[in-house]
Simulated assay, not measured.
Amino acid sequence: MTLSSASSGAAASASLPSPQFPAVMPPARHARITGTGSMLPTRRVSNEELAAELAERGLETSDTWIVERTGIRARHFAAAEQCASDLGLGAALNALEAAGRRADEVDLIIVATSTPDMVFPSTASIIQRKLGVHGCPVFDLQAVCSGFVYALSVADSMIRTGAARCALVIGAEVFSRILDFNDRTTCVLFGDGAGAVVLEASDEPGILASRMHADGRYREILCVPGTVAGGQVLGDPLLKMDGQAVFKLAVSVLESVARETLAAAGRTEADIDWLIPHQANIRIMQGTARKLKLGADKLIVTVDEHGNTSAASIPLALDHAVRSGRVQRGQTVLLEGVGGGFTWGAVLLDF
């Protein structure tokens, strides 16, 4: 289709389907998660397998070295033909099934990702097409490992104002595409995957409070400093991280944003049934739990099998906890993430 004139553009616009949803909807009192879903690539890569691959590059590591420093025992890597939208679609379909909703009932799709299928259109629009629906607003949100918390907060706000009634919020990543496999300090940490939730308007309390923050002064400690210009990659397109700086900042901001979010909801640490933090490093997660006076039995951990899946890690862990029977209806859950940018945030919800 060419748009060589105003008349041809008008004709093309006239042929587009009209939106399926009303332009204005009444505000909702609450937004509640009604379904969760996830998808992992088929290929599971154990520490032993990864160590053997790195040894071929002249890099020495081991299962013991990785587990002691991170708690990670395995991760999943996407196949060459798999993109973030493929993983996100699988997670979305599972979440819709759990919620008892059809794809054409969704009126908002937000995808948190730092590894989109392409520069544009958004991965959200690609997932929308793969779902076979059209008309509702869709967009990507980029806040790296805090992305899902940011996306859930935005969807909550849109539902509360009446801009949406049934949202798909997805975190989907293929971080294996941006790893430097000559750097053992970073390539052992990350994996691929996707998680999703269906968030709906409700008369019952769901999301109680959320808080988001960022500080660009720390952008260098976790970044991918490359870009595309003139058909070429400028700079370095692989992930760079100052692990010690990230660790120190992460523990501090995760505690502060957790307390801030609890205060906004009028709750205390004693009200938390489950803590689901970004699955980056077991030591960061355990340190945050201790600062909040939460026992290990209240901490959801999937980093051992998934690695750090960035924006996908929280919804992946949530779905895993729901389907294993640990997170149940009526319980209070604290989600929190921290990532490049430097970004951080938390969401407190009654599940």
Rank of each mutant, 00 (worst) to 15 (best):
Met25Leu: 12
Leu294Trp: 14
Ala196Cys: 11
Asn308Cys: 09
Arg160Pro: 01
Pro121Gly: 09
Ala98Glu: 07
Val246Ala: 02
Leu179Trp: 11
Trp344Gln: 06
Glu48Trp: 10
Ala11Asp: 15
Pro22Val: 04
Gly243Ala: 02
Leu152Asp: 00
Gly295Phe: 13
Ser62His: 00
Ser15His: 10
Leu234Phe: 09
Glu97Gln: 11
Asp271Arg: 03
Ala80Pro: 04
Met241Gln: 13
Thr123Ala: 08
Ser85Ala: 12
Ser252Phe: 03
Ala143Asp: 11
Trp274Leu: 10
Ala55Thr: 06
Ala84Arg: 01
Pro116Arg: 07
Ser324Lys: 07
Ile221Asp: 06
Glu97Pro: 00
Leu222Ile: 14
Ser210Gly: 08
Asp107Ala: 09
Leu349Val: 07
Leu179Glu: 08
Arg75Lys: 06
Met1Leu: 13
Cys83Asp: 09
Ser324Arg: 11
Arg44Thr: 11
Asn94Val: 03
Ser256Arg: 14
Phe21Arg: 08
Pro137Gly: 12
Met158Arg: 10
Val333Ala: 09
Leu238Glu: 01
Ser157Pro: 01
Gly307Ala: 08
Gln279Pro: 06
Ile109Asn: 05
Ser122Arg: 07
Gly135Ala: 12
Gln244Lys: 15
Leu239His: 00
Val188Lys: 04
Phe175His: 08
Ala143Val: 12
Arg217His: 15
Gly295Pro: 09
Val228Lys: 14
Gln244Thr: 12
Ala270Trp: 04
Ala52Ser: 13
Thr186Ala: 00
Val174Trp: 04
Ala11Ser: 12
Leu50Lys: 14
Leu89Ala: 03
Gly162Glu: 13
Thr113Gln: 08
Ile110Ala: 06
Leu348Thr: 09
Ser38Ile: 10
Asp117His: 11
Ser114Val: 14
Ala78Gly: 04
Arg211Glu: 15
Ser176Cys: 00
Ser313Ile: 09
Ile170His: 05
Ala280Lys: 00
His306Ala: 07
Ala11Arg: 15
Phe342Pro: 03
Ile284Asp: 07
Thr64His: 14
Gly35Cys: 13
His213Lys: 12
Ala289Val: 01
Cys223Thr: 13
Glu49Phe: 00
Ser125Lys: 04
Glu53Cys: 10
Val169Tyr: 06
Leu318Lys: 02
Val301Thr: 13
Ala92Cys: 11
Ile170Gly: 05
Val149Ser: 07
Met241Thr: 00
Arg217Phe: 08
Arg101Gln: 15
Leu59Phe: 00
Cys187Tyr: 02
Arg219His: 14
Gly35Gln: 10
Ala31His: 08
Leu179Asn: 10
Val338Met: 15
Arg32His: 13
Gly88Asn: 02
Gln232Tyr: 09
Glu255Gln: 14
Glu336Asn: 12
Leu294Asp: 12
Asn94Ser: 14
Val174Lys: 07
Pro121Lys: 06
Glu260Ala: 11
Ile126Val: 15
Cys187Met: 06
Ile178Arg: 04
Ala14Phe: 15
Ala317Arg: 02
Gly191Asp: 03
